[in-house]
Computed example of a mutant assay.
Amino acid sequence: MGQPLNILNIGIVGCGNIIAQYLSTLPSLDTLRLVAVADLDLSRAEAVAADLPGVRALSVQDLMDDDEVQLVLNLTIPAAHAQVALQAIAAGKSVYGEKPLAATAEEAAGVLAAAAAAGLTVGCAPDTVLGTGTQTARRAIDDGLIGRPISATATMMCPGHERWHPNPDFYYVPGGGPLLDMGPYYVSALVTLLGPVKSVIGAASHTRDSRTIGSGPRAGEEIPVSTDTHVSGVLIHESGALSTVIMSFDAVATQSANIEIHGETGSLIVPDPNHFAGDVKLRRLGDDSWETLPVSGGYVAGARGIGLHDLAATPAGQEPRAGGALAFHALEVMESVLRSAHTGQLVDISSTCPRPEAVPLTVLSHAEALTHSG
């Protein structure tokens, strides 16, 4: 996105499962330099740093106090997202977090307000929306291949993350659940494709009071469930398009496309928004079959962490594509779907955000080193 690019020094807080996916990407991006890692359990940070020459293992506070760190990559659990982000901002550092931006929209608003007051930048996953899958679909919509968009469906059905995750507790407490865990991928993609949402209607169920961990040292342990595990919602976009969203930790499987977009003159099948790539298929009005569209937008061979590159390459004063405004809007949308489910009423969305700028087809200098991780 133009040369030369400044190098942004990154410090990671949180050395859990997700860090491996970021570490497979960050060394390949010449706009970023990882300088330190931290965790409440210092031994975990030390184990990560041992395999990364030049990267220091620090306590969380020492990382925040380190002048070399310019941006904190927040990979903590959702309940700690706001606290760590505010700590980073107070230390004069920009922050990029795993999704969701915070456990609640109220907490997220505090993060954005603090960053704005300090003149710092907030970015947030998912950055999968910057990959060739979602961006090729975006290009097709922008080029008018389906005419005026009318509706969309977004479906994520699985039996629950406790089957594979060794410490799945946070998926089953407020701030977790299928909507707040997986919904950010889908809602962020829908906003990228169809624009912001003005109101929502929701319904939800909570089918079991406990789950059994299926792997790791805690296999067989029962954990409590205190959040909705099957959620349906209708998102009413400012454009007038209607998106129907189904997110479940209670189902076995589905053959539904992850996302479908329907317009007056065509329909699109959009690949899994939890991945960066995948085939985009178009069926035009009057055709009797689907065609696979050529890749026409997005970061080629993108992987987790590409949002940090995009942030580093964003001109000062401009909102990153995977920025705080989109993350906050998506969080408010999801929170409002749950509120509607519990009240039985339509809920208006108070926030909005610009439809993020499209990503032109972009091959990075080290694209061959990146993976299509999800």
Rank of each mutant, 00 (worst) to 15 (best):
A241Y: 00
V252M: 11
G278K: 01
D228K: 13
M247D: 07
Q255V: 15
T212C: 01
D250S: 08
D279A: 15
S243N: 03
E264D: 14
P273K: 03
G266Y: 10
E222T: 11
N258P: 11
I213G: 12
S210H: 14
G214E: 04
I223V: 08
D250M: 13
S256C: 15
T265H: 07
S210D: 08
E260G: 09
S215Q: 10
S239A: 04
A219P: 06
Q255G: 15
A277M: 07
S267N: 07
P271H: 01
G216A: 05
P217D: 06
G240F: 04
I269Y: 09
D209V: 05
G266Q: 10
S210R: 12
H262M: 12
T244D: 04
V280S: 02
S267V: 13
D250Q: 09
M247R: 08
S248T: 00
E264T: 15
F249L: 06
N258S: 10
T244G: 03
I223M: 02
I269Q: 12
D272I: 05
A257C: 13
T229L: 11
H275P: 03
G233W: 01
R218F: 08
E222A: 07
D228V: 03
I261R: 06
I236T: 15
G220C: 13
G263K: 08
T244V: 13
D279C: 12
T227M: 03
H275R: 14
I223H: 00
N258W: 13
T229H: 01
G216T: 12
K281V: 10
I269T: 08
S256A: 15
V280I: 03
T244M: 10
T212I: 10
I246N: 09
A251N: 15
H230N: 03
G263R: 01
V225S: 09
L242G: 03
L235N: 02
M247W: 04
L242C: 09
V245S: 02
E264H: 10
V245T: 00
G266W: 07
I246F: 10
D272M: 04
V234M: 07
D250W: 03
T212R: 12
T212V: 15
G233F: 05
S226H: 12
K281I: 12
E260W: 12
P271T: 05
S243E: 12
G240I: 12
I213Y: 07
G214Q: 05
S210P: 04
R218C: 06
E221K: 08
H275S: 14
I236M: 11
A241G: 00
R218Q: 12
P273Q: 05
G278E: 01
E260V: 14
L235G: 08
S239P: 08
I213S: 05
A257W: 11
I259V: 13
L268Y: 02
G266R: 07
T212F: 02
K281S: 14
G240W: 09
S239R: 08
D250C: 13
V231L: 03
S267C: 11
D279H: 11
V245D: 01
R211M: 10
P217C: 00
S226W: 09
S232H: 09
I223D: 00
P217Q: 09
L242M: 12
K281E: 13
H237K: 05
D279N: 14
S256L: 10
A257H: 14
R211G: 06
D272N: 14
D209W: 11
D228F: 10
V234W: 09
Q255D: 14
V231C: 03
V280F: 06
